[in-house]
């Protein structure tokens, strides 16, 4: 998934690699971002989804937990036998699918935001240190990454949640513990590449300390790749949360989640396909949006492409 991040996009040519401040000032950042269609479309969708999640109590037509067995397994509004007001139908307990979908966005986006940010911080710090100071630090970090990569991520996340105990914080911690390696590997490689560039050598010749170069020179040049990775990681986090909900290890069942709805829909697939199809479609579009946003950001922020 995020490991598919193309490496060839990284600035390879020493002459073009270091974006000077003058270059960056030539065109404001927001114009680069708006010029990238994918950033605009995916970004708008995700912003809309965030608004829906935040204002869920006002937007959702019904209480997502309200059961009404008289109204169970209602089909979506366009199908025969539908009940007005239940746009996407109901599940086997008579709960409104649309309202559950809207509330489910809260869990999905919370996990995406918090888990991706924390994983990015942990992985980047280790990656920067390993790539810049090399030696013993690099050896230790690289070995740790190797060991980590020997675990199947899905199994490890299930295992971690089983150990920590179910619930939102456990899901977030599990994702951070597993996915920091994605950031660590990319940031380490990027740092090593930047460290060999002329501008870094120049900064050292002038007499900047190693730490100053790391923070003031390397970090800003690694940042574009990092931002794109965070967006991709958010997509992955949404999937992991859905998988954990699917196997019943995420948040408690009185909080609607897309993964939980999918698990329920999978059980009653032959009676009510919409209970599975609705959250699956949301999951698909949301993951696609994070993915496209990440790709678009990488392009828009790439110092070489920006010229």
């Amino acid at each position: 998934m995020a490991d598919a991040l193309p490496r060839e996009s990284a600035p390879l040519d020493a002459a073009t690699a270091a974006p000077s401040l003058a270059q960056r000032a030539r065109r404001p950042l927001w114009r680069d971002l708006l010029a990238e269609k994918r950033v605009v479309i995916a970004g708008s969708y995700l912003a809309l989804l965030a608004l829906v999640a935040i204002f869920a109590p006002w937007i959702a037509p019904r209480d997502p937990l309200e059961q009404d067995l008289m109204l169970s397994l209602l089909p979506p509004a366009w199908a025969a036998g539908a009940e007005p007001g239940y746009w996407l139908g109901t599940d086997d307990l008579g709960r409104d699918v649309l309202s559950r979908l809207i509330y489910g966005a809260r869990v999905a986006l919370t996990v995406a935001l918090v888990a991706a940010t924390l994983a990015a911080i942990l992985g980047s710090v280790l990656g920067l240190l390993a790539g810049w100071y090399r030696g013993l630090v690099d050896g230790a970090v690289s070995r740790l990454v190797d060991i980590w990569m020997a675990f199947p991520p899905v199994l490890l996340s299930i295992l971690l949640v089983a150990i920590i105990g179910a619930g939102l914080p456990a899901v977030i911690i599990a994702i951070v513990i597993i996915d920091w390696t994605r950031f660590c590997r990319v940031v380490r490689a990027e740092t090593m590449q930047q460290a060999a560039q002329d501008y870094v050598i120049a900064a050292r010749t002038i007499g900047f300390s190693r730490r100053a170069i790391l923070i003031r020179e390397i970090l800003p040049n690694v940042a574009p790749v990092l931002v794109a990775l965070v967006s991709l990681e958010m997509g992955i986090a949404v999937i992991v949360e859905a998988i954990l909900s699917f196997v019943g290890l995420s948040v408690s069942s009185d909080m609607p989640t897309w993964g939980g709805m999918i698990a329920q829909g999978r059980q009653i697939i032959h009676h009510a396909w919409w209970v599975l199809a609705a959250p699956l479609a949301m999951l698909f579009v949301t993951v696609l949006a994070f993915n496209q946003l990440g790709d678009g950001l990488r392009r828009a922020l790439d110092p070489v492409a920006r010229r």
Binding site: M1, A4, G235, I236, I239, A242, I243, F246, I262, R266, I269, H270, W273, L276, A277, L280, L283, F284, V287, L288, N291, Q292, D295
Partner: peptide, 23 residues
């Protein structure tokens, strides 16, 4: 191919369930 890259196995599997086992 970009679409294939973006969609994880979990989503494919459930989409197949809907299309090739139900519809």
């Amino acid at each position: 191919n970009g679409l294939l890259l973006a969609v994880p196995d979990f989503i494919w599997a459930l989409a197949f369930v809907l299309v090739f086992a139900v519809f």
